[in-house]
Design a protein around this nucleic acid. Sequence first.
RNA 1: CGGGGCGUGGCGCAGUCUGGUAGCGCACCUGUUUUGGGUACAGGGGGUCGUAGGUUCGAAUCCUGCCGCCCCGACCA
Length: 445
Amino acid sequence: MRLSRYFLPVLKETPAEAQIVSHRLMLRAGMIKQASAGIYSWLPLGFKVLKRIEQIVHEEQERAGHIPMLMPTLQSADLWRESGRYDDYGEEMLRIKDRHDRDMLYGPTNEELITDIFRSYVRSYKDLPLTLYHIQWKFRDERRPRFGVMRGREFYMKDGYNFDLSKDDALHAYNRHLVSYLRSYERMGLQAIPMRADGGPIGGDYTHEFLVLAETGESEVFYDSAVTDLTFGDRDIDYDNVEQCAGVLEEFTSKYARTDETHDETVWADVPEDRQRVARGIEVGQIFYFGTKYSEAMGATVQDADGNQVPVHMGSHGIGVSRLLGAIIEANHDDNGIIWPEGVTPFHCGIVNLKQGDEAADAACEGLYDQLTKAGLEPLYDDRNERAGGKFATMDLIGLPWRITVGPRGLKNGVVELTNRRTGESEELAPEAAVAKVVAIYAGV
RNA sequence: CGGGGCGUGGCGCAGUCUGGUAGCGCACCUGUUUUGGGUACAGGGGGUCGUAGGUUCGAAUCCUGCCGCCCCGACCA
């Protein structure tokens, strides 16, 4: 993309409404615009990152054998009356009437819809196990939305639902989700720690939430420092292997890691003192096993091998896709702006032309743009007739992990400059060598 | 929902207390200049001062209602 043709309304000054760094940077970098309290338009740059995150989630869910679909945002109240949650959910649920005065709602979650789909078609244990998921906009009418996309009213979320014949099978699904979530977060450049959680309004005995450590996190967290040493790396995971998935869960959840909601001082005291850590965290996902709560209430049963009608065991599993943008920025920024992890960056590499109109500089930039594009990458070429300082400031603000700087002075010696946004380290390279290096970096992402 | 605050060109703010017909910085447009980390100068465009009503010769300014947004708390992905 050429910046002169793109739509990137960056702000030099921070709008007064933004308090936390991710919100400020998203506004300044021209990623979002508030439409009303807790509701945002996603401008091109923000939309691009949102889609990258969504894509990672899709890939990892499908790798785990979970099946994508799409359910509507607006739902009929009838199903929610059946489960009992129409009355239980409270003011957070946005209730709407249609022209026929029928009660509708903007879905805050989808257990009722998915259970209705399941019971409409599935009759036999032979159709199990089954895990369906979708990524869709949700709405929770927060009393006080804040922190930009981290606590909006409208938010984009992946929610998945497993249907299994037995509790053991459902727990395998639970473990599978934990593994796929760990993989997803790691690809986004985040370390998200699974922590024992409360069931909340969705309910459930087995539940973990995934927290990203950040000073601005909404929850206080207590953990054994050993958990932050765990990485997922290049593990070869067989999602059908029950023992292997259970082993990962054991490995990642056996050490103490809890939010203030479930914190237990007596257990905490057993953690070696030099490994006790108290910090803040941002919740970016949660997994639940809740057994037959919805299947019994809504008659989602299958016939088992013995001919009995049995309610299916279910779980639901969510990743806050839009919230992740905020979490990633909270964990990856400096005074100059955002620093995108390579896995989610909106553009792979920036190209800064220091002297637009200079024949050699223009030609070199076009060459770089061409080569990077042909290598399957998306460069962002700042071809505006701006001063160098302004171009650098924009690049730093929007946070592309790599930048190639091209100017007449360097070109006289046959070099351009490749700069790492995170470390600030630069090296002078021949243009082809700079391209080769960037291509190699992304080949490993 | 309790408590607090704010609505003035696109953004950040001053002006409100003490009423006299709207100003500054950034951004934007034009020209000159400059060009390796947000050049300098000159000229220019853009605002029913959130909204409705009231008081007054006169309201951004005083009074009342309403709307919107932000912060703290409680609550939550």
